[in-house]
Simulated assay, not measured.
Amino acid sequence: MQIEFAAPLWQWQVRTDSWWFVTVPPEHSDELADLPLPPRGFGSIRVRVTVGTTTWTTSVFPSDSNGGYVLPMKKKVREAEKLVPEKPVQVTLETIDV
């Protein structure tokens, strides 16, 4: 399955660590939740992601706070694509192992 969406970049801080995410919109999170996938840690789903000219493999994770999935955004990607907090990020996400 391949989905495309735009959503703002946001930061989650825990202790001294800082993690950056983009939230998968509810309609696409529902599609991901309905996939018949093998069980993985934390309910994660392996994906191939493209933002701008950068493509990488990672996982999306269920989020307790919004009931959808969140996509972690590596520092390397944020810097290469000049992503700015709270600004929309155009994402192409393709599931792996489906």
Rank of each mutant, 00 (worst) to 15 (best):
S63R: 13
H28I: 07
A6W: 03
V84P: 01
L83R: 00
T92V: 14
T57H: 10
E86C: 09
G68S: 07
V77D: 01
T55K: 05
A33F: 09
H28C: 08
P38K: 15
L35G: 09
V70G: 02
P85E: 04
F5S: 03
V84E: 13
L9T: 00
T54C: 03
E31F: 09
E27S: 11
L32K: 06
D30E: 14
E94N: 10
E27L: 03
T53W: 10
S65D: 04
V98Q: 15
E27I: 01
V49N: 11
V49Q: 11
I96R: 07
W19T: 03
K87T: 10
V22R: 03
V24P: 11
K87H: 13
S59A: 12
W20N: 05
R78A: 01
V60S: 00
G52R: 11
V70E: 03
L71R: 01
V89W: 10
P26V: 06
K74Q: 04
M1Y: 00
Q2C: 08
T95V: 15
D17W: 12
P38G: 12
E81D: 02
L71F: 04
M73R: 00
W19G: 02
F61V: 00
R15A: 09
T57P: 05
R78Q: 01
T50F: 06
T95D: 13
K75F: 00
P88Y: 00
P26T: 06
S65G: 01
V24T: 00
F42Q: 14
P8F: 15
T95P: 14
T92P: 01
L93D: 09
V60L: 05
N66K: 07
P72I: 00
D64G: 10
T54P: 02
W10G: 05
A6N: 07
A80W: 13
T57I: 12
R78S: 06
M73W: 04
P88K: 02
T23P: 08
V91I: 12
T57N: 12
P62V: 05
G52K: 10
E86L: 13
G68H: 09
T53N: 14
P39K: 14
D64A: 12
V84I: 12
L71A: 05
D34Q: 14
W20P: 02
S18V: 13
F5K: 02
R15E: 08
N66S: 08
D30A: 13
H28F: 15
H28L: 11
V77S: 02
Q2R: 14
K76T: 11
D34E: 14
M1A: 07
M1H: 10
T57C: 08
P62K: 04
V70T: 09
P72R: 04
